[in-house]
């Protein structure tokens, strides 16, 4: 459940979850697999890097039952992500989309703040 005091806006949504920005607490909320988790900006980017670094090919090739899933426990969150291969792919899609929107927002903000003479 997203904090009721949060002033949040949806950044990106897929069939498997969503990412919101809370401009009051300067953090991102990740809604995934039936739960929500708040991340500070730096932690969110680190979490994305961690998910991107998961070697899905190795998980597929490895016949061991323990290789079917991976556990990610991001620092400064109470959450423990137990991710099967399809969860990793779904989470990646969500985080990639959210990151794109975060960067797009930066570009839009930069354009809006430019003085007219700098656009010439």
């Amino acid at each position: 459940m997203v904090c009721p005091l949060a002033n949040f806006e949806e950044l990106y949504r897929t069939d498997h979850g969503a990412v919101y920005q809370c401009s009051r607490q300067n953090c991102y909320w990740l809604e995934f697999a039936g739960d929500t988790t708040a991340f500070k900006v730096g932690d969110f980017l680190s979490f994305k890097k961690k998910i991107d670094a998961i070697d899905v090919s190795a998980m597929i090739i490895n016949p061991s039952r323990t290789a079917d899933f991976t556990i990610v426990m991001p620092f400064r969150t109470p959450r423990c992500f137990v991710l099967y291969i399809n969860d990793v792919l779904n989470l990646r899609e969500l985080l990639n989309g959210a990151k794109f929107m975060i960067e797009l927002n930066s570009v839009v903000n930069e354009c809006l703040k430019r003085t007219p003479h700098s656009l010439v």
Partner: peptide, 14 residues
């Protein structure tokens, strides 16, 4: 929307 990314860092990721 507030630009949280630039509030955190002035460096481009690349």
């Amino acid at each position: 929307m507030k630009d949280l990314l630039r509030l955190k860092t002035s460096l481009n990721e690349e």
